[in-house]
Amino acid sequence: MHLLIYGCILGILLGGVYGLMASGLALVWGIMRVLNIAQAVCVILGSYLAFTAFTVLHVDPMLAVLPISVVMFVFGVGIYYAFLRPIRRDRESLSILVTYAIAIGIEGALGLIYTTSLQHTGTSYATQSFEVGGFQIPTVELYAFLISVAILGLLALMLQRTRLGRALRAATQNPTAARLLGVDIDRVSAVGFGIGISTAAAAGAVYGMIYSFNPNSHYDLIGILLAIVVLGGFGSMRGAIVAALILGVIASVVFIYWPLWANLSFFGVVVVVLLFRPQGLWGVPNWATQ
Protein backbone atom coordinates (compact mmCIF):
# COMPACT_ATOMS: atom_id res chain seq x y z
CA MET A 1 0.00 0.00 0.00
CA HIS A 2 2.77 2.35 0.99
CA LEU A 3 4.55 1.51 -2.23
CA LEU A 4 1.39 2.11 -4.22
CA ILE A 5 0.90 5.58 -2.80
CA TYR A 6 4.55 6.33 -3.36
CA GLY A 7 4.14 5.27 -6.99
CA CYS A 8 1.17 7.60 -7.35
CA ILE A 9 3.12 10.53 -5.94
CA LEU A 10 6.06 9.96 -8.27
CA GLY A 11 3.62 9.43 -11.12
CA ILE A 12 1.97 12.78 -10.56
CA LEU A 13 5.32 14.55 -10.38
CA LEU A 14 6.45 12.95 -13.62
CA GLY A 15 3.01 13.36 -15.18
CA GLY A 16 3.27 17.11 -14.73
CA VAL A 17 6.44 17.18 -16.82
CA TYR A 18 4.89 14.94 -19.46
CA GLY A 19 1.87 17.20 -19.40
CA LEU A 20 4.01 20.17 -20.35
CA MET A 21 5.61 18.25 -23.21
CA ALA A 22 2.30 16.92 -24.51
CA SER A 23 0.33 20.14 -24.17
CA GLY A 24 2.53 21.70 -26.83
CA LEU A 25 1.79 18.77 -29.08
CA ALA A 26 -1.93 19.21 -28.51
CA LEU A 27 -1.76 22.96 -29.06
CA VAL A 28 0.00 22.56 -32.39
CA TRP A 29 -2.40 19.87 -33.51
CA GLY A 30 -5.36 22.02 -32.60
CA ILE A 31 -4.20 25.05 -34.49
CA MET A 32 -2.81 23.55 -37.65
CA ARG A 33 -3.58 19.84 -37.79
CA VAL A 34 0.09 19.00 -37.67
CA LEU A 35 1.14 16.02 -35.61
CA ASN A 36 4.60 17.01 -34.56
CA ILE A 37 6.70 13.86 -34.35
CA ALA A 38 9.68 16.14 -33.67
CA GLN A 39 8.17 17.22 -30.35
CA ALA A 40 10.11 14.56 -28.44
CA VAL A 41 13.43 15.32 -30.07
CA CYS A 42 12.90 18.97 -29.17
CA VAL A 43 12.52 17.85 -25.56
CA ILE A 44 15.88 16.12 -25.84
CA LEU A 45 17.30 19.20 -27.55
CA GLY A 46 16.14 21.20 -24.55
CA SER A 47 17.83 18.69 -22.26
CA TYR A 48 21.10 19.13 -24.14
CA LEU A 49 20.87 22.91 -24.09
CA ALA A 50 20.35 22.84 -20.33
CA PHE A 51 23.15 20.32 -20.02
CA THR A 52 25.50 22.62 -21.91
CA ALA A 53 24.36 25.65 -19.94
CA PHE A 54 25.07 23.72 -16.77
CA THR A 55 28.41 22.12 -17.63
CA VAL A 56 29.90 25.02 -19.60
CA LEU A 57 28.30 28.14 -18.15
CA HIS A 58 27.41 26.68 -14.75
CA VAL A 59 23.87 27.90 -15.00
CA ASP A 60 21.27 25.98 -13.05
CA PRO A 61 18.86 24.21 -15.45
CA MET A 62 15.92 25.81 -13.69
CA LEU A 63 17.29 29.24 -14.52
CA ALA A 64 18.18 28.13 -18.02
CA VAL A 65 14.55 27.29 -18.73
CA LEU A 66 13.68 30.85 -19.67
CA PRO A 67 16.44 31.55 -22.24
CA ILE A 68 16.03 28.05 -23.65
CA SER A 69 12.32 28.66 -24.13
CA VAL A 70 12.98 31.89 -25.97
CA VAL A 71 15.63 30.39 -28.26
CA MET A 72 13.49 27.37 -29.02
CA PHE A 73 10.48 29.55 -29.71
CA VAL A 74 12.42 31.22 -32.49
CA PHE A 75 13.64 27.83 -33.67
CA GLY A 76 10.05 26.57 -33.80
CA VAL A 77 8.86 29.59 -35.78
CA GLY A 78 11.71 28.99 -38.22
CA ILE A 79 10.76 25.33 -38.62
CA TYR A 80 7.17 26.31 -39.25
CA TYR A 81 8.02 28.69 -42.05
CA ALA A 82 10.65 26.43 -43.58
CA PHE A 83 8.93 23.07 -43.49
CA LEU A 84 5.32 23.17 -42.41
CA ARG A 85 3.81 26.18 -44.10
CA PRO A 86 4.73 24.87 -47.56
CA ILE A 87 2.58 21.77 -46.97
CA ARG A 88 -0.74 22.76 -48.44
CA ARG A 89 -2.28 19.49 -49.54
CA ASP A 90 -3.03 16.60 -47.24
CA ARG A 91 -1.38 18.29 -44.32
CA GLU A 92 -2.54 15.84 -41.69
CA SER A 93 -0.71 12.92 -43.22
CA LEU A 94 2.26 14.61 -44.84
CA SER A 95 3.13 16.55 -41.71
CA ILE A 96 3.72 13.28 -39.87
CA LEU A 97 6.34 12.29 -42.42
CA VAL A 98 7.90 15.74 -42.60
CA THR A 99 8.17 16.19 -38.85
CA TYR A 100 9.60 12.70 -38.60
CA ALA A 101 12.33 13.70 -41.02
CA ILE A 102 12.95 16.83 -38.97
CA ALA A 103 13.19 14.64 -35.89
CA ILE A 104 15.87 12.36 -37.28
CA GLY A 105 17.70 15.37 -38.71
CA ILE A 106 17.87 16.92 -35.24
CA GLU A 107 18.77 13.54 -33.78
CA GLY A 108 21.66 13.32 -36.23
CA ALA A 109 22.82 16.84 -35.47
CA LEU A 110 22.73 16.12 -31.73
CA GLY A 111 24.75 12.97 -32.33
CA LEU A 112 27.36 15.01 -34.19
CA ILE A 113 27.69 17.56 -31.43
CA TYR A 114 27.27 15.50 -28.31
CA THR A 115 28.01 11.92 -29.48
CA THR A 116 25.57 9.19 -28.63
CA SER A 117 26.71 8.47 -25.09
CA LEU A 118 24.21 8.97 -22.28
CA GLN A 119 24.28 12.31 -20.51
CA HIS A 120 22.69 13.60 -17.38
CA THR A 121 22.46 17.10 -15.94
CA GLY A 122 23.84 16.31 -12.51
CA THR A 123 23.04 19.30 -10.34
CA SER A 124 24.12 19.41 -6.71
CA TYR A 125 20.62 18.52 -5.60
CA ALA A 126 20.21 15.77 -8.19
CA THR A 127 20.53 13.00 -5.63
CA GLN A 128 18.84 14.76 -2.73
CA SER A 129 15.44 13.92 -1.45
CA PHE A 130 13.33 14.88 1.50
CA GLU A 131 10.76 13.10 3.52
CA VAL A 132 7.08 13.92 3.65
CA GLY A 133 4.86 11.68 5.73
CA GLY A 134 7.18 8.72 5.36
CA PHE A 135 7.72 9.17 1.61
CA GLN A 136 11.10 9.99 0.14
CA ILE A 137 10.43 12.66 -2.47
CA PRO A 138 13.36 13.31 -4.83
CA THR A 139 14.09 17.04 -4.89
CA VAL A 140 14.63 17.30 -8.66
CA GLU A 141 11.36 15.62 -9.46
CA LEU A 142 9.50 18.03 -7.24
CA TYR A 143 11.29 21.02 -8.79
CA ALA A 144 10.64 19.69 -12.27
CA PHE A 145 6.98 19.27 -11.44
CA LEU A 146 6.69 22.75 -9.97
CA ILE A 147 8.37 24.37 -12.95
CA SER A 148 6.15 22.47 -15.35
CA VAL A 149 3.04 23.49 -13.48
CA ALA A 150 4.22 27.10 -13.40
CA ILE A 151 4.80 27.15 -17.16
CA LEU A 152 1.49 25.46 -17.82
CA GLY A 153 -0.16 28.06 -15.61
CA LEU A 154 1.42 30.89 -17.55
CA LEU A 155 0.39 29.26 -20.79
CA ALA A 156 -3.19 28.88 -19.61
CA LEU A 157 -3.27 32.48 -18.46
CA MET A 158 -1.92 33.62 -21.81
CA LEU A 159 -4.52 31.56 -23.67
CA GLN A 160 -7.39 32.77 -21.53
CA ARG A 161 -6.59 36.40 -21.04
CA THR A 162 -4.60 37.83 -23.90
CA ARG A 163 -5.44 38.84 -27.42
CA LEU A 164 -2.92 36.36 -28.78
CA GLY A 165 -4.37 33.62 -26.60
CA ARG A 166 -7.86 34.29 -27.89
CA ALA A 167 -6.57 34.21 -31.44
CA LEU A 168 -4.86 30.87 -30.83
CA ARG A 169 -8.01 29.38 -29.41
CA ALA A 170 -10.14 30.88 -32.15
CA ALA A 171 -7.90 29.46 -34.86
CA THR A 172 -8.19 26.06 -33.18
CA GLN A 173 -11.95 26.06 -32.92
CA ASN A 174 -13.01 27.63 -36.18
CA PRO A 175 -10.27 28.71 -38.58
CA THR A 176 -12.59 30.19 -41.19
CA ALA A 177 -14.40 32.36 -38.71
CA ALA A 178 -11.07 33.41 -37.23
CA ARG A 179 -9.91 34.49 -40.66
CA LEU A 180 -13.10 36.49 -41.14
CA LEU A 181 -12.35 38.39 -37.96
CA GLY A 182 -8.91 39.34 -39.13
CA VAL A 183 -6.77 36.58 -37.63
CA ASP A 184 -3.75 35.84 -39.80
CA ILE A 185 -3.81 32.05 -39.54
CA ASP A 186 -0.28 31.73 -40.87
CA ARG A 187 1.18 34.01 -38.24
CA VAL A 188 -0.84 32.47 -35.47
CA SER A 189 0.24 29.00 -36.60
CA ALA A 190 3.87 30.05 -36.58
CA VAL A 191 3.53 31.47 -33.08
CA GLY A 192 1.63 28.40 -31.94
CA PHE A 193 4.29 26.09 -33.30
CA GLY A 194 6.97 28.18 -31.63
CA ILE A 195 5.14 27.90 -28.32
CA GLY A 196 4.74 24.15 -28.77
CA ILE A 197 8.45 23.69 -29.37
CA SER A 198 9.48 26.01 -26.58
CA THR A 199 7.33 24.19 -24.02
CA ALA A 200 8.89 20.93 -25.19
CA ALA A 201 12.37 22.33 -24.68
CA ALA A 202 11.49 23.84 -21.32
CA ALA A 203 10.22 20.46 -20.19
CA GLY A 204 13.37 18.92 -21.62
CA ALA A 205 15.57 21.20 -19.54
CA VAL A 206 14.12 19.80 -16.32
CA TYR A 207 13.69 16.29 -17.75
CA GLY A 208 17.46 16.09 -18.20
CA MET A 209 17.90 16.48 -14.45
CA ILE A 210 15.72 13.45 -13.77
CA TYR A 211 16.72 11.03 -16.50
CA SER A 212 19.79 10.23 -18.55
CA PHE A 213 19.35 10.91 -22.22
CA ASN A 214 21.07 10.55 -25.56
CA PRO A 215 20.01 11.68 -29.04
CA ASN A 216 18.17 8.40 -29.48
CA SER A 217 15.95 8.87 -26.42
CA HIS A 218 13.27 10.65 -28.38
CA TYR A 219 11.87 7.39 -29.74
CA ASP A 220 10.72 6.26 -26.32
CA LEU A 221 9.49 9.70 -25.49
CA ILE A 222 7.42 10.29 -28.60
CA GLY A 223 5.58 7.03 -27.98
CA ILE A 224 4.64 8.28 -24.55
CA LEU A 225 3.62 11.74 -25.77
CA LEU A 226 1.48 10.34 -28.55
CA ALA A 227 -0.23 7.96 -26.14
CA ILE A 228 -1.00 10.97 -23.98
CA VAL A 229 -2.63 12.97 -26.77
CA VAL A 230 -4.63 9.95 -27.92
CA LEU A 231 -5.98 9.49 -24.40
CA GLY A 232 -6.57 13.20 -23.87
CA GLY A 233 -8.20 13.73 -27.22
CA PHE A 234 -6.29 15.32 -30.07
CA GLY A 235 -5.97 19.04 -29.83
CA SER A 236 -7.21 19.36 -26.28
CA MET A 237 -4.56 20.82 -23.99
CA ARG A 238 -6.62 20.17 -20.90
CA GLY A 239 -7.06 16.59 -22.06
CA ALA A 240 -3.33 16.26 -22.61
CA ILE A 241 -2.52 17.43 -19.10
CA VAL A 242 -5.08 15.20 -17.42
CA ALA A 243 -4.01 12.26 -19.57
CA ALA A 244 -0.37 12.90 -18.71
CA LEU A 245 -1.17 12.74 -15.03
CA ILE A 246 -3.24 9.58 -15.41
CA LEU A 247 -0.60 7.86 -17.52
CA GLY A 248 2.21 9.09 -15.28
CA VAL A 249 0.55 7.46 -12.30
CA ILE A 250 -0.24 4.23 -14.13
CA ALA A 251 3.29 3.95 -15.52
CA SER A 252 4.91 4.69 -12.17
CA VAL A 253 2.82 2.10 -10.38
CA VAL A 254 3.49 -0.48 -13.08
CA PHE A 255 7.17 0.41 -12.86
CA ILE A 256 7.26 -0.40 -9.17
CA TYR A 257 5.90 -3.89 -9.66
CA TRP A 258 7.04 -4.79 -13.20
CA PRO A 259 9.77 -2.34 -14.20
CA LEU A 260 10.25 -3.74 -17.72
CA TRP A 261 6.63 -3.23 -18.70
CA ALA A 262 6.11 0.35 -17.58
CA ASN A 263 6.19 1.69 -21.12
CA LEU A 264 3.71 -0.90 -22.26
CA SER A 265 1.13 0.55 -19.90
CA PHE A 266 1.03 3.70 -22.05
CA PHE A 267 0.03 1.71 -25.07
CA GLY A 268 -2.31 -0.53 -23.16
CA VAL A 269 -4.26 2.59 -22.29
CA VAL A 270 -4.32 3.57 -25.97
CA VAL A 271 -5.96 0.25 -26.83
CA VAL A 272 -8.59 0.76 -24.16
CA VAL A 273 -9.26 4.25 -25.48
CA LEU A 274 -9.66 2.92 -28.99
CA LEU A 275 -12.13 0.33 -27.85
CA PHE A 276 -14.33 2.55 -25.78
CA ARG A 277 -13.79 6.16 -26.71
CA PRO A 278 -11.91 6.65 -30.00
CA GLN A 279 -12.05 10.45 -29.71
CA GLY A 280 -10.22 10.41 -26.35
CA LEU A 281 -11.28 11.98 -23.10
CA TRP A 282 -11.72 15.50 -24.37
CA GLY A 283 -12.28 14.92 -28.06
CA VAL A 284 -13.52 18.16 -29.58
CA PRO A 285 -16.98 17.77 -31.10
CA ASN A 286 -16.84 17.32 -34.81
CA TRP A 287 -18.67 20.37 -36.02
CA ALA A 288 -16.38 22.60 -34.04
CA THR A 289 -13.38 21.58 -36.04
CA GLN A 290 -14.82 21.91 -39.51
Binding site: R169, A170, L180
Partner: peptide, 21 residues
Protein backbone atom coordinates in the same frame (compact mmCIF):
# COMPACT_ATOMS: atom_id res chain seq x y z
CA UNK B 1 -21.30 33.81 -42.65
CA UNK B 2 -23.95 31.23 -43.33
CA UNK B 3 -22.57 28.43 -41.23
CA UNK B 4 -21.90 28.62 -37.54
CA UNK B 5 -19.04 30.95 -36.98
CA UNK B 6 -18.77 31.17 -33.22
CA UNK B 7 -15.87 29.61 -31.37
CA UNK B 8 -17.83 26.95 -29.53
CA UNK B 9 -15.47 26.34 -26.62
CA UNK B 10 -14.88 30.02 -25.90
CA UNK B 11 -17.17 32.05 -23.71
CA UNK B 12 -19.76 34.31 -25.28
CA UNK B 13 -17.82 37.28 -24.05
CA UNK B 14 -14.53 36.08 -25.52
CA UNK B 15 -16.34 35.55 -28.79
CA UNK B 16 -17.46 39.13 -28.67
CA UNK B 17 -13.94 40.32 -27.91
CA UNK B 18 -12.69 38.37 -30.92
CA UNK B 19 -14.89 40.63 -33.02
CA UNK B 20 -12.50 43.43 -32.17
CA UNK B 21 -9.41 41.37 -32.79
Amino acid sequence: PQDRSLFPLMSVWDNLLMGGY
